[in-house]
Design a protein around this nucleic acid. Structure first.
Length: 475
RNA sequence: GCCCCGGUCGUCUAAUGGUUAGGACACCAGGUUUUCAACCUGGCAAUCGGAGUUCGAUUCUCCGUCGGGGUACCA
């Protein structure tokens, strides 16, 4: 089994393309096949090395690795050209000297397809004249001469497909400037690379009969086709930039984990058949099969992706999470990277912040009060728990400073001390906890307050509490 | 216009010629709790419409409708 992913480097790696890549990769890995990467850069004007690199990086990030390539379609132009000329010599294609603009206008006028007008012109011209003009160096395009009849092929997703050849135009296979067109290039390349399974987006379904005709005309053996449905935006329209993030790179920037992205993408247009949704890479490879591919388009639901990411986050190795958090917090001036060295402490921290985070960005936000000295005070928290009743807030922080004085700094003892003091003051524990949380984290919400105290340690906690008292006084 | 593809809760999906049409995300309610999450319990919610085949169709067929793709000397 030989499969391929063949993106054109005219933009970033779109999630739809990424999903196609994932499907191909999954099939290859599941069945011991070979996965080939081919960059379709025949459209020179729109292609760039930069885009190619972005696409390669995106695949690598996702964990989609290739066994062969990347090959570049532009490297095969000589072969493409040779294929086109062979068809010409064999009478399966013809020269088209006409001006494409004029032909299109005429076709429009006569209600015909442009290629049929071109075919008519070719026939009017006659073989001799055609030959003469070619020898005189007049430029021409080469069109495939579509035979009468019907083109039938099998699609793994859609079943047997029938197309009447009268609906297939005599497509240009070689432009008048000598460059091959897409349909010829893919067929020639897929044949050359001995691709056995072509799985791609539904948008290529209508191209397939043309390509099948090309395979047959060239005498190349046809691959098995599978056309997977498209991915839509939340409004049910084709996913585009106005839906927000559509590039794989956008999601990596937002703190989505690659294994979560792959998991989510695999579930768009495919399902394992049971109720499993959270799946590791290995589980996906194990479970994947083309016969469970779906026919209908699906909507890219970022909420579900976020949920899935949270699940993967919980299973992700701590060391890597720490590296990500460091990357994000490095921007922060008061960041103290040396704290990351204490693996036991970091482990405890991650344990309490992981369930509160869905993305790596969330995780960094949660970790910030513990890893940075400078707090970002949430105005809502300050207003509610400090400013509404500043006197009580100060009293309560002072009381806690006193209550915590000299005790062993453990979750249990801290809790006992706080609750005892609350009882003595005849207030609920929450009344002490809320202003305390603001002083320790600057936030409205945080992990359990005794976890926060323990994680911060005596020194940093007391400093922040004292600083809190100062801040309230100054207001 | 012509050709082609598709249509199960808001979303991702499961299922079968006969089921109370299942699960998940989201949402709502309750529990837990110092907050926010996480977690537990419960709830809301779907077979695009119309014919036909059949004892019985969500499932099979046709028509319609809606959505999508193609119809380039783009890929």
């Amino acid at each position: 089994m030989r499969l391929r992913f063949a993106p054109s480097p005219t933009g970033y790696l779109h999630v739809g393309g990424a999903r196609t890549a994932v499907f191909n990769w999954l099939i290859a890995r599941n069945g011991g096949g070979t996965f080939v990467l081919r960059v379709e850069d025949t459209d020179r004007a729109r292609s760039s090395d930069e885009h190619t690199q972005v696409i390669l990086d995106g695949l690598t990030w996702l964990g989609v690795d290739w066994d062969e390539g990347p090959f570049f379609q532009s490297e095969g132009v000589e072969r493409h050209r040779a294929d086109a000329y062979r068809l010409l010599e064999e009478g399966k294609a013809y020269r088209d000297f006409s001006d494409s603009e004029a032909v299109r206008a005429e076709a429009q006028e006569r209600g015909m397809h442009p290629s049929r007008v071109a075919r008519e012109k070719m026939q009017e011209l006659g073989a001799e004249e055609t030959e003469r003009r070619a020898e005189a160096g007049e430029p021409f395009a080469i069109r495939l001469l579509v035979p009468d009849g019907e083109t039938v092929f099998h699609d793994l997703v859609h079943g047997e497909m029938h197309f009447g050849n009268e609906d297939i135009d005599d497509l240009v296979i070689l432009r008048s400037d000598g460059t091959p067109t897409y349909n010829l290039a893919v067929v020639s390349d897929d044949a050359e690379m001995r691709i056995t399974h072509v799985l791609r987006g539904d948008d290529h379904l209508s191209n397939t009969p043309k390509q099948v005709l090309l395979y047959r005309a060239l005498g190349y053996s046809e691959p098995v086709f599978a056309h997977v449905p498209l991915i839509l935006g939340a409004d049910g329209k084709k996913l585009s930039k106005r839906h927000g993030a559509t590039a794989v790179g956008d999601y990596s920037k937002e703190g989505i984990l690659p294994e979560a992205m792959m998991n989510f993408l695999a579930l768009l247009g495919w399902s394992p058949g049971d109720d499993r949704e959270f799946m590791t890479r290995d589980e996906l490879i194990e479970a994947f099969s083309t016969d469970r591919l779906l026919k209908s388009a699906s909507v890219f639901d970022t909420d579900k992706l976020a949920w899935l990411n949270g699940r993967h986050l919980a299973e992700h190795p701590d060391a890597e999470l720490v590296a990500h958090v460091r990357g994000i917090l490095d921007e922060e001036e008061s960041f103290r990277p040396e704290l990351l060295g204490d693996t036991e402490w970091i482990g405890e921290l991650l344990e309490v912040i992981k369930p509160r985070a869905r993305t790596l960005d969330d995780l960094a936000d949660q970790a910030r009060p513990f890893l940075c000295d400078e707090l970002h005070f949430e105005s809502k928290a300050v207003a509610k728990h400090w400013e509404k009743d500043p006197t009580s807030a100060i009293d309560r922080l002072d009381a806690l400073l006193d209550a915590f004085d000299g005790i062993s700094w453990t979750r249990e003892d801290l809790e006992t001390a706080l609750r005892t003091r609350a009882a003595a003051m005849d207030v609920s524990a929450g009344k002490l906890i809320h202003p305390l949380r603001v002083s320790l984290t600057g936030n409205m919400a945080s992990p359990g307050i005794f976890d926060v105290l323990a994680l911060l340690g005596r020194e940093r906690s007391r400093n922040r509490m004292e600083d809190g008292v100062e801040r309230i006084r100054r207001r």
